[in-house]
Design a protein around this nucleic acid. Sequence first.
RNA 1: CAGGGUGUAGCUCAGCUUGGUAGAGCGUCUGGUUUGGGACCAGAAGGUCGCAGGUUCAAGUCCUGUCUCCCUGACCA
Length: 647
Amino acid sequence: MVEDGHSNTDARRIEAQRTNSGLTSNLESVPSLQGVNFADMSTLNTQSDSIRPSYLNAAAGCVQLWSQTLIPTTREAPGDAKTPSHIFLTRAGYVRQVGAGIYNYLPLAWRSLKKISEIVRQEMDAAGASEMLMPAMMPIELYKDTKRDVDYGDLLFTFEDRHGRRTALGPTHEEVITDLMCGALTSYKQFPLNLYQIQTKFRDEARPRAGLLRCREFIMKDAYSFHMELEGQAGLNAAYDKMYQAYTNIFTRCGLDFSAVEADAGPIGGSASHEFMVNCESGEDTILVCPQSGYAANVEKAEIGTRPHSFDLAPSAEIAKHHTPNMPGIDGVAEHLGLQASGMLKSIVFQTIEETPRWVVAVVRGDHDVNEAKVRDAVGVSVELAPEKQAIEAGFIIGYVSPKTIDTIKQVLVVDPDALGANSWGTGADEKDHHITGFNWSRDMATHIASNSIKVADIRNAQAGDPSPRADGAFLEERRGIEVGHIFKLGTKYSQAMGLSVLDKNQKKQDVIMGCYGIGVSRTLSACIEMSHDDNGIIWPAAIAPYHVQIIALKPKAEGVMEEAHTLAKELSVQGIDVLIDDRDDRPGSKFKDADLVGIPVRFIISPKTIEAESIEFKARSDADRAQLIPRDQAIVSAMSSLAKND
RNA sequence: CAGGGUGUAGCUCAGCUUGGUAGAGCGUCUGGUUUGGGACCAGAAGGUCGCAGGUUCAAGUCCUGUCUCCCUGACCA
């Protein structure tokens, strides 16, 4: 049997699969699978080819016995695990914690991570990017030119080697790759270029949380593209669009429910940026969407549609001063003054980040939040919250600041349109423990309005109910999400800082234009669980499930049960399906509970009863119902069509 | 970084107020009875009570210091 050419070919394909994909097949550990005649399976192949899901293995899938791997499930989660992904990853035996924000990836987790990585690789390669690997550690000097040794601050893990050299563990690799390119990119003819890696990253997060969602050590795909121009086929814009499409493909193939939203580029800099968010209520990011135009943006970035405003509202009350001691929150002060928070002005003191810093006072309505990035855009320079000590030295009475400080302190005064929409406001008295009521812009700020020294700009976070910036008459809605991907147009920020330039066609020296593109691989794993689970455990999309099918052998010691499990596993694996056989000699109840926890999409149950009836029990993890009895010869087709629904 | 909490068996936790033989459930191991949604009986193994000092005849418990981990916020490509 084994001599026939067909099975030899298949055996070689299996071997190739083992060595190439890293998804180790355990065929040799399953005695009954040795010497399989694969030719016998040909009928099965033709039977199910039409519904074959695309994510199945090209060659044979793997078969793993539960008893031969490590899946330490627990009945109880640690008391401090709060989020579903943290609870289920721990309970189902995917991860174990090592330290704050540091985890072991156990066999199940690692299999899923490899599947996500493989999808990422395929789509990145298809989009013309090349995989490489940079080091995780690097001399701190590398970050000097871009000043990120300071900008990144405590987020950077550093240590000293035996010679006293300060070394950093890479939080991201813009500097490393730009430095590499300084020596490797020598001609405009080499462009465009897109390089990526999948690697462990390190960030000393102030507060790691929620299991794998915010870790200090995590797996990330980071890609960097290099261009001589923005436009055209070889330009940054085209590469950015290509990455946008690749990301859309990746997250679609992973089976995620996600949104691509406009984002603020943040300290990484650059002109345009999109985030890919897994949609789920427990997400820590807020997204605003316009139901009419499809506009979607992170709250840090979301624009607000035009809001009419004017300085001309007539005063309706005299200014009155009130004693308001020990009231830190604006709500408390408002209540004391008999006002709503929306009847107050909130004045936040910023400082510009430039050689001679200027004071910036940003004024928004009391119930709104100042958006630092928007203040930055309004002023035209980066800003930071003013250091309290310096602000006090300059004369600001922190906690009691009003727009009237402009009378005494030279500053840039920026006001949000909504902070002009009433004729009488409560605000700080610029005096400790005191607030005023009756503030009116046209009366109390007349000279500054006349001299045009007050800037009106959108400087607050958008919120549900705000006018849409893209469709007249439409209003923004709020959603929550988990950021799993982020793409940036960097421009020349890094190449300029590090001297990466190349002679162009006209022999003119040009700074290289860059883009960078990240995917949180390990975060994607947990985001997926946040998005897809029930009370009993994980419900994996088939494409990134550690195994496609789980076979539960009930009474595995009974005659014929394990033999039947192996036979079915063999039939499935030939189809490219990865199979986990629960061969533990346990009671049915605990095996069902564990199967629900682990979340494999398709479940077969084999027992002496089903063998007797020449049937088998079948259940999709996503179905609420109990398993149903089906004829044994329909097992493969049932599995295939159930998995195909997931494709 | 601010505030709050935590650390005792492989896991989840009690014991600490009021100092005096180290506890429970789950899990593990042995034997038996069981076997379709986390079984039952009998037995067993398993802990320098985070670490370091101190008080005391005696410290898991009181005192001081220190570390860890978690939560809320700040922070965060």
